[in-house]
Write a protein that binds this DNA or RNA. Sequence first.
RNA 1: GGGCCUGUAGCUUAGUCAGGUAGAGCAUCCGGCUUUUAACCGGACGGCCGUGGGUUCAAAUCCCAUCAGGCCCGCCA
Length: 525
Amino acid sequence: MHWADHTAQTLQNRDGSQVIASGITPSGEFHVGHLREILTAEMIHRACLDAGMESRYIFIVDSMDPLRRVYDFLSPAYQQYIGHPLAYIPAPGPDGAPDPDGGNYADHFLAPFLTALKEIGVEPEVVMNHQTYESGAFADKIHSSIEQKDEIRRVIEEVSGREVPEDWFPYNPLGSDGSIDGVSVTGYEHPHVHWVDSHGVEGTADIRTAQGKLPWRVDWAAKWGIHGITCEPAGKDHGAAGGSYDTGIPICEMLGSQPPHKLVYEWIQLKGMGPMSSSTGLTVGPMDALALVPPEIMRYVIARSKVGRHIDFDTGPALFQTADEYERLVAEPPSGSDEELSRRQQIARDTQLGALRLSQVGKNADPAGSVAGVSFRHLAMLAQIKSNDDDIWDSLRNSGHLEGEPGGTLIGRLRRMRNWVDGPHFPDAAKIEVQSGVSDEIRVHLTDEHRQFLSALSGSLEDCEWTEEAIGDCIRSVAAGVAIGGREAYVALYWIILGKNHGPKASSLMAEMEMEHLLSLISET
RNA sequence: GGGCCUGUAGCUUAGUCAGGUAGAGCAUCCGGCUUUUAACCGGACGGCCGUGGGUUCAAAUCCCAUCAGGCCCGCCA
């Protein structure tokens, strides 16, 4: 069974409808790793719906979390905002300086991420955490946390093994300058928390507003209760023993709610470069990834991997393999009845079918539509030899891959393929490079038969209409005339054009070349 | 120091929770297809399941130990 279906089955034992959640702090650029968080949760949500359960999927943006430090992409001017909730500070402009017209920091980074999510078929209910504070929804949990201050402290110390400071208080008010740093709590009279900040200013925070927040371990546990979250996948950093998930569970219970089902996922790494890290600049943003990778393939990368396995995100040669694998699965989904399959084969069948189902951008869409009738590899070839999109559609019509006008899926696939082919990630081995001349190394591969054929072809091509079809006819008639095997005729052409003994459809390739260049190559043999 | 994840064919991996003859795909090689989608079809090759113990009639699977890689324990998916 697929992991998402298995999780759905586990959740079925709980009362009520499901609320699957993701939570991310918008402290900077979102990256591909965040897509795993989102897609893991969203696939569980879909699996619940598919199992006939009621389910919602919410994306909690931790907009109340404070800015922790001045990141590399921020100007030093952000020093003044350290400790301030991300929702209440200005977004950086292109130069990294606070941009007064750029809206707030949290929204600035969130907006493009939501656009990327839409492309992969994810449209969550977005909850801005600072608004939940502003609405007063946290008030009961905050009050309850303060009343159980010592018990919560004990839980954190026992479960995490960490010493909690003497002056710890389960509520961090914002000080006179808007920062939660350096603010000491001096008393509590429901619903007001009294404080004094590092400037010596005294004040009062109303827990029914966003004048302060819970410390994050408590904040997370409180959110579970407030939203009735039944499952929130967490990255392995939170999932480690003694991590925030383990302290969150008892705290959530102390605050009067049932904690969610724990699920820990491994991280995505960039191939050969370790985990994502915004500080080292080693990131691939969701938009970057989706500019190259078709959305259903992006989903498939997550769906096919077990939650506990790390994923190497590879935009090089592995992308061909992933696409091949996906297309094979679409073309021939695993089948067979329980009777004729072993238990293991049944598991494999159900897991693959689940991965295929959950990879679709549209929920329960027909997977066949996602491939748009053209293989990823074929499109890679066409995108390289034809610079004009219309020529590609013509080619696809001629080859029977396309009828009429291309649909949105196919257009999107070509757009991404062109980005890939023209960008730095495209593998050299897949590049089609027309030779500028025929080298000695290549010449040794040519037989007399090859030369005879090429020489005859040279004469015919000069009178040939320069279209794919005419060139194809020309090759065939010349080949027949000089009694060379059909295959060998093409091998000869591939050697002189590409320097290899094989390649994409020769006539397409030749039609894209200048006739003079081709004739000069032949003359060099 | 504490903890988590991973280790199965050259590569990517399924199977581990509920022990019952190790399965796939890619790559490679061979063969087929009289006119090339880097295509397609058929076949072969290839694993003491990281290592060492233990439990069991039976272990990739459970237990103990050990090695290796990745990671977490201030914030981070």
